[in-house]
Simulated assay, not measured.
Amino acid sequence: MLDNVLYAWPELLQALGETFYMLVLTIPIAVVIGTPLGTILFLTRPGSFLKAPRFYVLLNGIVNLIRSFPFLILMIAIIPFTRLIVGTALGTTAATVPMIINAVPYFARFIEQILLDVNRGVVEAAESMGANRMQIVWKVLYTEARSGIANAVTIVTVSFLSYSTVAGLVGGGGIGDFAIRYGYYRYQTDVMFVTIVIMVLFVQLFQFTGNYIVRKLDKRL
């Protein structure tokens, strides 16, 4: 058992590095694009600040459409677009393209729901003091929702850690490709067991770190 693990260890480290490379690209871009997208969904929904029902229906439909695609099907469906963006449909960088496309609306929907949960009385108090819409968004909504946003980042990170393993099915590298080679083709259960343990530890680390940040940001605790 130890011999197999030691033999596969360099490749396992490389696979973990590729997986985290996907996350480092995907999660920040999802947050940067998904946060304003979710905010726009919140602001334009019926009964909110901006009266743009047609725009909301269109944007909401696009978000729902992208989110409805199973990730593996999405990866295959946008291969021509992936080639256009990064020059190839194979490799770790190429795998981040469908991950980003899938993560942005996923995170945007989180942001919309989190902003909906903000106490309406706080928003009305800011309006009564003469705050404009931009000030309400930046200084009231985001401030009140900061712990929820941190929790959403944690959930998305853990979710897309598992999504990244699917990239191995289409030549994306990472821990999924490692699992296919050692767990499926070679059927080395000892190596797979160590891999699973490492992944579980990383998930627990992400979740613990996220929960800690949420507790620090949540004014109710």
Results as ranks from 00 to 15, higher is better:
L12K: 08
L25Y: 15
A108Y: 01
L217Q: 07
I114C: 07
T82S: 12
G91M: 07
F178G: 03
F160D: 03
L115F: 10
I85D: 05
A108L: 03
S164H: 09
N4F: 00
D177M: 06
A179F: 09
S159R: 06
A179W: 08
A108C: 02
G174R: 00
F110S: 03
I100S: 02
Y185A: 08
I101K: 04
G210L: 09
A15Q: 01
L74K: 12
Y56G: 04
W138S: 11
T44E: 01
R67F: 02
V156R: 03
V5E: 02
P36Q: 13
T92Y: 07
Q113K: 07
K216P: 08
L90D: 12
A89W: 08
N4Y: 02
V5A: 11
A15Y: 04
I66S: 05
G91L: 06
Y184L: 15
G87E: 09
E144D: 00
L13K: 10
S147M: 01
I73M: 15
F42G: 00
F110C: 08
N60P: 09
G171P: 13
I85C: 03
Y106D: 01
N211V: 07
G61I: 06
I196E: 00
Q188E: 12
P105S: 04
V158T: 13
M129P: 10
N119A: 05
Q135K: 12
L116I: 00
I111S: 04
L141D: 03
G183Q: 09
T82W: 05
R146K: 14
F20C: 04
Y163N: 04
P46H: 09
T96S: 15
R220T: 04
V140L: 03
G121R: 07
F81I: 15
W9C: 07
F193D: 00
L201C: 15
L72C: 11
G168C: 05
V86N: 11
F208I: 14
